[in-house]
């Protein structure tokens, strides 16, 4: 099996995730796109582990670690999203401009 197939699949998944993060407006859908990008990284790790068998299962161990970090990230991310919803009544990432207004006020 050519190594290029999993690598290209990972590239495609990562770029779909990038598109999702840039184009989506709802913060939760942006978080879902983050998950797609992390999965692309995992696919790379597993593919290189199967290509370069080092006896330490390096790629697979790191993939498990990345999955753990993804769980921590989504927990914190959703807590922040819920906080945003509680304060503003929406989860629109484009409309959350509190920090921008503060910056403009400080310039004046």
């Amino acid at each position: 099996m050519p190594l290029i197939i999993p690598l290209l699949l990972a590239v495609a998944l990562f770029c779909i995730g990038v598109y999702g993060v840039l184009a989506r407006r709802n913060a939760i859908t942006m978080l879902m796109s983050f998950e797609l990008m992390l999965n692309a990284v995992n696919l790379n790790l597993i593919a290189f582990d199967a290509w370069h068998v080092d006896g330490l299962a390096t790629g697979q161990t790191l993939a498990v670690f990345v999955i753990t970090i993804a769980a921590a990230e989504i927990g914190l991310g959703l807590a922040i999203v819920l906080l945003l919803f509680r304060g503003h009544g929406h989860v629109d990432a484009d409309a959350a401009r509190d920090l921008l207004e503060q910056e403009r006020g400080a310039e004046q």
Partner: peptide
């Protein structure tokens, strides 16, 4: 895909953590 690359444990963790929890 992980299973096809013989990373069965990572595939199971993926299903458990991602699909089951996230």
């Amino acid at each position: 895909c992980f299973g096809a690359l013989h990373a069965e444990f990572v595939a199971l963790v993926q299903i458990l953590v991602y699909v089951g929890a996230i």
